[in-house]
């Protein structure tokens, strides 16, 4: 069975000459929850955007479900992207914001309506569907943005630091809901984060990246069968994993600095 997304020898060099991605190999299997973590500027967002085909790679091969990007969007091969900002339309009610991707695909209203309601229920916003974004808190706006991604019933969900701007309590709660949503539905997810705790809590596989040039430094596997709840967050196992991952991150950061010394004038 072909991976959901496969990247082989993918490089990205920006016009400015920045080597954002040195050759990267990555195969994402169905149902995986992958976190990308690493120091700022190591190319996490760039890697995610290559996966989303927002950026074309400079070299290497990317395949979605074993095929090229033109097949993405068809039934069973849907992809959704959640940005760091909610990017909602301020002039549209929550339900209209969530319906946007269906409208752009010209899905008839009768089909769209139950899907929109279901997506909003999934993120716990069933009671504010007639509200405007300005009437929502930061956390609720992010939920609406996630509902807008879920409404297309994606098979692959890409998220770039979706909860980075939220306070810790809200972030923990949304992490819990995200984990439930993704694991219960077997949704394949790639999640960029700055937070090591968030990565451990959510992921079945954490990809640690290093910078200069951006590359995959190492991987950390976490049993996907673990229930992602508050008990997990407080467990010794969780603390152990955080410590292991923290060590790996430190090594990745040193590798970064050593590499940086090598190239700086």
């Amino acid at each position: 069975m072909s991976p959901v997304v496969g990247l082989w020898g993918v490089e990205k060099i920006f016009g400015s000459g920045v080597r954002a991605l040195a050759p990267v190999d990555l195969e994402i299997q169905p149902g995986e929850f992958i976190s990308l973590i690493g120091p700022s500027g190591c190319g996490k967002s760039t890697l995610l955007k290559v996966i989303a085909s927002i950026h074309p790679p400079t070299a290497g091969l990317v395949r979605w479900w074993g095929r090229d990007f033109t097949h993405v969007g068809s039934e069973g091969h849907r992809m959704a992207f959640v940005f760091q900002d909610p990017t909602l339309m301020p002039w549209a009610r929550v339900e209209d914001n969530v319906r946007l991707p269906l409208d752009l695909e010209r899905v008839p209203a009768s089909t769209a309506a139950p899907q929109v309601r279901a997506a909003l229920e999934q993120v716990g916003l069933g009671h504010v569907l007639r509200h405007y974004p300005a009437q929502l808190s930061g956390g609720m706006k992010m939920r609406a943005s996630i509902a807008r991604a879920l409404v297309t019933r994606p098979d692959l969900l890409l998220m770039d630091e979706p909860f980075g701007a939220l306070d810790e309590f809200t972030r923990d709660r949304l992490d819990g809901e995200m984990a439930r949503l993704c694991y219960e539905n077997g949704l394949t997810t790639v999640f960029v984060t700055h937070s090591l705790y968030e990565a451990v809590f959510l992921s079945s596989r954490v990809i640690v990246m290093a910078a200069n040039p951006g590359r995959i430094f190492g991987e950390y596997h976490i049993d996907p069968a673990i229930r992602r709840d508050d008990a997990f967050r407080l467990s010794d196992g969780f603390a152990h994993m955080c410590r292991d991952l923290s060590q790996m991150l430190t090594e990745a950061t040193h590798a970064t600095f050593a590499g940086a010394e090598g190239v700086s004038p």
Partner: peptide
Amino acid sequence: DPGLEAYFRMHKATRVQMLLRL
């Protein structure tokens, strides 16, 4: 909003959709 514009473009919005809805 450049974020919204990127979102519309990612969803392959047409010129008319861009004009009317954004």
